[in-house]
């Protein structure tokens, strides 16, 4: 993500990265970033909370105009209801949670697979 941001910015397109892994944002040093301290998978807000999703997006967009120095990371106020997720997320032990790496499309549902395969047949 940071690679893409830096590339686009060099072409003259202002970018802003909105993410919830602060150390990964710091390492990638994108031109502008907004950090929301939620568990990974919630970069644009809490699930089923349209007000929070709107808040996060609007705050992120405003950073386009407020960040004046390259590499700035704005920290959004974040109030995830509990901190239980942090221990598991930051654990140095545990299983590899990645899925196997192969080239088969990984549909969320069987219905998606049927729809996509039917669409491919028509094209």
């Amino acid at each position: 993500m940071s690679l893409a941001a830096r590339h686009l910015e060099a072409l003259g397109i202002p970018t802003l990265c909105l993410g919830s892994a602060l150390d990964i944002l710091e390492a990638g040093a994108p031109p502008r970033a907004v950090f929301v301290d939620y568990p990974l998978g919630h970069s644009t807000g809490k699930p089923f909370d349209r007000a929070d999703q709107a808040r996060v997006l609007r705050a992120a967009l405003s950073a386009f105009e407020t960040i004046k120095s390259p590499g700035t990371i704005v920290h959004l106020s974040s109030d995830w209801p509990d901190d239980g997720w942090r221990e598991a997320a930051g654990s140095t032990r545990g299983d590899d949670t990645r899925m196997p790496r192969d080239t088969t499309p990984q549909y969320q549902t069987d219905e998606d697979r049927r729809l996509a395969e039917a669409s491919l047949m028509r094209s």
Partner: peptide
């Protein structure tokens, strides 16, 4: 590939792709 982070997004996609807010 890290499906474990998708549990909520698969219930409410807008915590990752906020089309309503956009």
């Amino acid at each position: 590939i890290t499906e474990n982070y998708l549990v909520d997004a698969r219930r409410d996609p807008e915590c990752l792709v906020p089309l309503t807010a956009l």
